[in-house]
Amino acid sequence: MGILFIGGMLFGTILGRLFKVLILVPTCGVAIVLVLAKPVVADHSVAQTILEIILLVTGLQFGYAVGLISSNMSAVLRGFRKAFASSAHSAGSRSLHVR
């Protein structure tokens, strides 16, 4: 079960970095079909199959969010650097260099 969640997160991270959020609907649909189409489903209970579907879809969505955050991280860090640099320059009016 953990492999499903981690695999979903990894695939969701790739989707989050490359595509818009509309890609999640068909991807989740394909994931559900793949879980239901595997031959081991006959041995599993309905509750276990539903749990696998929930884990996979949740992993995809969390991974997508992580992919979005990681793709925008450089812009956020640049904003913090600019804000920190402007506040550091305006804090002191004298030079700290000693001759």
Rank of each mutant, 00 (worst) to 15 (best):
I3C: 13
I3V: 15
F5S: 12
F5W: 08
I6N: 10
G8I: 04
M9N: 06
L10Q: 02
F11V: 11
T13S: 13
I14V: 05
G16Y: 02
G16Q: 02
R17V: 01
R17A: 03
L18F: 09
L18M: 09
L18E: 07
L18K: 13
F19K: 15
F19D: 13
V21N: 12
V21K: 15
L24C: 05
V25D: 03
P26Q: 12
P26N: 08
C28N: 08
G29T: 09
G29N: 08
I32K: 11
I32R: 15
V33S: 10
L34Y: 10
L34Q: 09
V35K: 10
L36H: 03
L36E: 10
A37H: 01
P39Y: 02
P39T: 07
P39W: 02
V40T: 14
V41H: 15
A42M: 12
D43P: 12
D43C: 13
H44W: 08
H44T: 08
S45H: 04
S45C: 07
S45F: 04
V46P: 10
A47V: 13
Q48F: 14
E52P: 14
I54G: 09
L55C: 03
L55Y: 10
L55A: 08
L56C: 12
T58D: 10
Q61F: 06
Y64A: 03
Y64K: 06
V66P: 01
G67S: 13
G67D: 11
S70M: 03
S71I: 10
N72T: 02
M73Q: 02
M73L: 04
S74R: 06
L77E: 13
R81E: 06
K82I: 05
F84T: 01
F84D: 07
A85Y: 06
A85G: 10
S87R: 14
S87G: 07
H89F: 07
H89I: 12
H89G: 05
S90C: 08
S90W: 07
G92W: 00
R94Q: 06
S95F: 01
L96V: 14
L96P: 06
R99W: 05
